[in-house]
């Protein structure tokens, strides 16, 4: 729990994986295992993919949907599950309910009809987090956010995806930003997690929007100095906006 007065330490995470339970070959067994799986297993297969496939374009498909689409060759169930899991972020209870609802709604005969070929069974994995400190603590909220955008994506993932999953939606970083008077920035960061994008892609989009807002701030803060300097600053900011809008690509 942060008071907001102390500097903020950015934390990164790496996940150690270990198998959980027996591999499954069909939807019936998958339905049963999803009901019994600990939260960290659901986390490994739904949220972790955002870090693992951080740069893939578009919404990242969770592991279960990917397996159903490819090994079971059941694209309809895969698409329904993908959407349901994506909509349920970022709570374990919601993800489990979404999975159970979609898998349970597949007619029993169809659930039992398809089996993955030998060697293509689905192995559930449990993700054990190992956290580490990244660099020195920050006193300036904007410097902390700049580092969040610049350093390894595992830091973004920890503060914006893993912490909310573990703590009913809250994040120490967002809390600290709010206490430091940067509520709007915190809300904008929180909104990024709803995009369902790989971490790197989400960061790129946020970085672009943040830079634009920084440029706008500069225009506003230039109000007050002598007219000529104010005009120069406004021209500079506008030129920068145009450059970024015309040259930047939506890729990391």
């Amino acid at each position: 729990m942060t008071t907001g007065r102390e500097p903020f330490q950015l934390v990164g995470v790496t996940h150690l994986l270990r198998p959980w339970g027996e591999p499954v070959a069909g939807l019936d067994a998958m339905l049963e295992r999803v009901g019994a799986a600990p939260d960290e297993v659901l986390f490994a297969h739904s949220v972790c993919r955002l870090l693992r496939d951080a740069t893939l374009q578009g919404q990242v498909m969770d592991d279960l949907s990917h397996w159903i689409a490819t090994a079971l060759q059941d694209p309809e169930t895969a698409e329904r599950l993908w959407l349901a899991v994506g909509t349920a972020f970022p709570r374990a209870t919601a993800v489990r309910e979404a999975m159970l609802e979609v898998l349970g709604s597949v007619p029993a005969r169809r659930r039992g009809a398809r089996e993955a070929p030998p060697g293509a069974e689905f192995t559930f994995l449990s993700a054990v987090p190992v956290h580490y400190r990244s660099g020195e603590p920050f006193d300036d909220p904007r410097a902390a956010v700049a580092a969040l955008l610049e350093r390894e994506p595992a830091i973004w993932f920890h503060h914006l995806h893993e912490e909310p999953w573990d703590s009913e939606g809250s994040s120490t970083l967002l809390e600290w930003l709010r206490l430091r008077g940067e509520s709007a920035l915190a809300e904008r960061l929180a909104a990024c997690t709803e995009w369902g994008l790989g971490v790197e892609l989400a960061r790129t989009r946020f970085r672009k929007r943040w830079r634009l807002s920084q440029a706008s701030r500069r225009v506003v803060s230039a109000d007050g100095p002598p007219e000529q300097r104010r005009r120069d600053a406004a021209r500079g900011a506008a030129a920068m906006l145009v450059r970024r809008l015309t040259h930047e690509e939506d890729t990391p």
Binding site: T14, Y132, R133, S134, G135, E152, P153, A154
Partner: peptide
């Protein structure tokens, strides 16, 4: 890339 190396350096520091 820089990210994986930064991760390694942070873990090594720990």
């Amino acid at each position: 890339g820089d990210g994986p190396l930064r991760e390694l350096e942070s873990l090594a520091r720990e």
